[in-house]
């Protein structure tokens, strides 16, 4: 018996097992849903092509100076508000995690307030604070009328940045808590101070958890800057609307603004990918491939896959 069993594998041809040739299952539901989806998409495209839209106006104004100026202001506002948000967020997160009950309660209250009220309302409130404060008085350093001090730019910056800080605080807190306590212990056991442990050991590891949602926040922020048009700050949306009113192509200019937002968020997404990749080092055995590497690998595997096919043909 055992001899027979030993023989059987030797009898099979050395070329390996025969590949299975079977008729695949037909997924008719998939064909139907694909046709329906394409029909709907076609309908939407057709509707837009029939509308009285002057598509030519979009390329005409795409690189208009006022639009480019608006794009620059949108970017500036995004970056500065995010900077305020990130710095404030880290500060609030550390405050919330501190053992001091006063600082942790203040941080809790801040987050509660700014997360609990709509950012549009906050922006309008900042804009109208002049009704409450006639002057701004920072003692010997600075004194001015509120309306001169609170320019639309500063209103926008404070409104967006302070609101963002509340969200970033929660993201940073989650990141700091995600780092294993053993890391802090090991670092303390080596004689490192609290501050050094935080800076050298905990934060670099927390970044892996913090970066992806922060990238989301940046993209969100870029879009949220459009709310700032209500406080008279001439960013991208406002610039587009202004042109729309004078050129008689209001809807087209909104499409133009949308296209710019889409372009900018796409660029940010690529940047986010590389940043995540940087902070992933050490967390997995090999880093995820860059898009370029993926393309190259695909091309290589396609060509290597086609080779055996060519051999059998």
């Amino acid at each position: 018996m055992t001899v027979d069993i030993d023989k059987t594998p030797a009898d099979t041809p050395p070329a390996g097992p025969e590949a299975i040739k079977a008729i695949p299952v037909r997924h008719y539901g998939r064909y139907v849903s694909a046709v329906v989806a394409i029909a709907l998409l076609g309908g939407v495209v057709y509707a837009f092509s029939q509308g009285k839209i002057n598509w030519g106006a979009i390329p005409d104004y795409f690189f208009d100076d006022r639009i480019l100026d608006g794009v620059g202001k949108t970017l500036l506002l995004t970056i500065l508000s995010m900077a305020i948000g990130v710095i404030g967020g880290v500060l609030l997160a550390v405050m919330r995690l501190s053992k001091n009950p006063v600082t942790s309660s203040i941080a809790w209250f801040y987050i509660w307030f700014f997360r609990g009220t709509p950012v549009l309302v906050q922006l309008i409130v900042w804009f109208n604070l002049g009704l409450v404060f006639e002057y701004i008085n920072l003692g010997p350093f600075y004194k001015d009328e509120w309306s001169d001090f609170m320019t639309p730019f500063l209103t926008a910056l404070l409104g967006l940045g302070l609101n963002e800080a509340a969200y970033m605080a929660e993201i940073c807190r989650a990141g700091l808590l995600s780092v294993d306590e053993g890391q802090t212990e090991a670092s303390h056991a080596l004689g490192m101070s609290h501050a050094k442990t935080l800076r050298r050991i905990v934060i670099p590891q927390a970044m892996r958890v913090i970066v992806p949602p922060t990238g989301n926040e940046v993209i969100n922020m870029l879009k949220t800057t459009s709310l700032v048009s209500v406080v008279q700050y001439p960013e991208l949306l406002r610039a587009a609307q202004d042109i729309g009113q004078t050129s008689g192509a209001p809807a087209e200019m909104l499409f133009l603004a949308a296209a710019w937002y889409l372009l900018l968020t796409s660029i940010f997404s690529v940047g986010q990918y590389y940043l995540e990749r940087y902070y992933a080092r050490g967390s997995s055995r090999s880093l995820p491939a860059t898009p370029f590497q993926k393309i190259r690998a695909n091309v290589l595997s396609l060509s290597s896959r086609s080779k055996p096919k060519g051999g059998t043909a």
């Binding site: 212990e185 090991a186 056991a189 004689g191 670099p204 590891q205 050490g282 967390s283």
Partner: peptide
């Protein structure tokens, strides 16, 4: 922290810093 410099510790779960070689 200064006193801990003179005392080395090895943990059950190693606790190496994963973001460093």
């Amino acid at each position: 922290a200064v006193k801990r410099r003179d005392i080395g510790m090895v943990f059950q779960r190693f606790n190496l810093f994963p973001h460093m070689t």
